[in-house]
């Protein structure tokens, strides 16, 4: 692949509905990516949840962003108590187009279509109660139980996963 470069990424799932039932019409979808800043994501989410009466918010991420999405959800749950949660995992299909590069390439350059299946996560947080029978439902946690044994109040940097760049080489991607 050294002589190819990625020229286009097509998100197949874009525009498809989220995998949750009975969603609020004005639900906010947060697309968490690898480079998203947790303080920006959580800052926006906290303002939204505090301003709306029946606020609902969905964090969705794929590939290397999933850890960050889970972290955001955990921080938000601790900042705003009493949130109901439904978590769904699925594969996300992404089409990529790679084009040959280099000095001796005929015109138009040969292209490759690559289909990738990334593991993805969608997490719905809601102030209103959700269906407890649904797969992946989590009731609100009691705050007193979670907060014991904490030396510091919540801070973002503490919660971040250690910065470690690891290339995952899995045959099933």
């Amino acid at each position: 692949m050294e002589n190819f470069r990625r020229v286009q990424v097509v998100d197949e799932d874009d525009g498809q509905p989220l995998p949750f039932k009975n969603l609020h019409p004005d639900v906010v979808k947060m697309r968490v990516k690898e480079g998203s800043k947790i303080r920006n994501l959580v800052g926006y989410a906290v303002t939204h949840m505090l301003s709306e009466e029946n606020g609902q918010i969905v964090f969705s991420a794929y590939g290397r962003g999933v850890t960050k999405a889970v972290t955001c959800v955990e921080i938000l749950k601790r900042k705003i108590g009493g949130l109901h949660q439904v978590t769904k995992v699925q594969y996300k299909i992404v089409q990529e187009v790679w084009e040959q590069k280099g000095p001796k390439v005929q015109h138009p350059a040969p292209r490759l279509n690559v289909q990738k299946n990334y593991p993805s996560i969608n997490i719905l947080l809601s102030k209103e109660p959700l269906d407890p029978q649904e797969e992946g439902y989590q009731p609100p946690q009691s705050m007193a139980l979670k907060e014991t044994g904490k030396r510091f109040p919540l801070s973002h940097s503490e919660h971040c996963a250690p910065k470690k760049k690891t290339e995952e080489s899995e045959g099933c991607y």
Partner: peptide, 29 residues
């Protein structure tokens, strides 16, 4: 960092037993 792998593992399991397995994820700190 293993969250992505865990999801991948669960999804692969579901694919290898088509239609018979359900996934119920939860998150924690």
């Amino acid at each position: 960092l293993a969250i992505g792998r865990a999801i991948n593992l669960a999804l692969q399991l579901q694919l290898s037993h088509p239609g018979t397995l359900l996934l119920s994820p939860s998150t924690s700190t």
